[in-house]
């Protein structure tokens, strides 16, 4: 009886390890399929459209509102110390370093990652992937690779748009509504924000792009080919992507800004 529960634990551990191994093998195969998108760039453009352009609205609107909220909250705190002129620094650093990459990754995981998982899962459930293999077309290269690179390319651009729109939102609230001096807002921001901060934000969002699309594609590709299985994979794709993004963000922040 006790041995049985021990065995169940071991089975669970081995299963998780095996999944992790399959996920890495899949990532390897996807990344190596880069030749396919060089041969058929249209596949890539279509996926940048699906992941990037169609996420533009939610990313832009969220960025605007996050920036405006940062402007309001930051002003409230900074004004207590008589440092309301540093509002620009606060809004820009928090957006460029943290909120831009992280919130964009979470939004893309919800908006595009879930769609990727459902799409690939349904392809598997309706045996379209097997059909491709029957026609001697590698489904990993033909279906997964363009989606992966599309996500990796779209993510930093979306994060940059998020941050830029957010800074403008903070500007509208801080300078337009609350009367922070316009010159101080920009000049303090320019003096205190390094280009390294911007670069670190881009590196972060590249990493998040890999994580979100990888998890979404793997969950879809590895799904149990039933309606219930696809539904579970889709949920898991969003939940896992969000958790991994937040965890990796902590590690990256510690590496980039800790030392």
């Amino acid at each position: 009886m006790r041995l049985e529960s021990l065995a169940r634990l071991g089975r669970g551990g081995l299963g998780a390890l095996e999944r992790l191994g399959r996920a890495h093998l899949l990532l390897f195969a996807i990344v190596l399929g880069v030749g396919e998108i060089l041969r058929r760039p249209r596949l890539l453009t279509a996926q940048i459209f699906n992941i990037g352009v169609l996420s533009l609205l939610i990313v832009g609107v969220s960025g605007l509102f996050v920036g405006m909220v940062l402007g309001l909250q930051g002003y409230y705190v900074l004004a207590q110390f008589g440092a309301a002129q540093s509002l620009g620094v606060m809004v820009a650093t928090s957006l460029v370093r943290e909120l831009g990459p992280v919130v964009t990754a979470l939004l893309v995981a919800g908006r595009a990652g879930s769609a990727l998982t459902a799409e690939i899962g349904l392809m598997k459930a309706t045996e379209q992937l097997s059909g491709l293999e029957m026609m001697a077309v590698d489904p990993v290269r033909r279906i997964l690779t363009p989606r992966f690179y599309g996500g990796v390319i779209a993510m930093p651009l979306l994060a940059a748009i998020f941050s830029a729109v957010g800074v403008l939102g903070g500007y509208f609230v801080g300078v337009g509504l609350l009367g922070v001096d316009e010159g101080a807002f920009w000049s303090q921001m320019q003096a205190k924000v390094d280009f390294d901060d911007v670069m670190d934000g881009i590196v972060k969002s590249l990493v998040f792009g890999v994580i979100v699309t990888w998890i979404a594609l793997f969950e879809g590709y590895d799904t149990v080919p039933t309606s219930e299985g696809v539904s579970r994979s889709t949920t898991r794709s969003v939940v896992h992507a969000a958790l991994v993004v937040l965890g990796v963000d902590f590690v990256l922040t510690a590496l980039m800004f800790g030392g």
């Binding site: 459209f49 460029v96 940059a160």
Partner: peptide, 26 residues
């Protein structure tokens, strides 16, 4: 699709340029 993707990428690079020039004053 190609036109909108082009516009999206241009917008993204514009945002990056904005971040680099206006915010960090590269």
């Amino acid at each position: 699709i190609e036109v909108t993707v082009g516009a999206f990428m241009a917008l993204g690079f514009l945002a990056l340029f904005f971040l680099a020039m206006q915010i960090s004053n590269l």
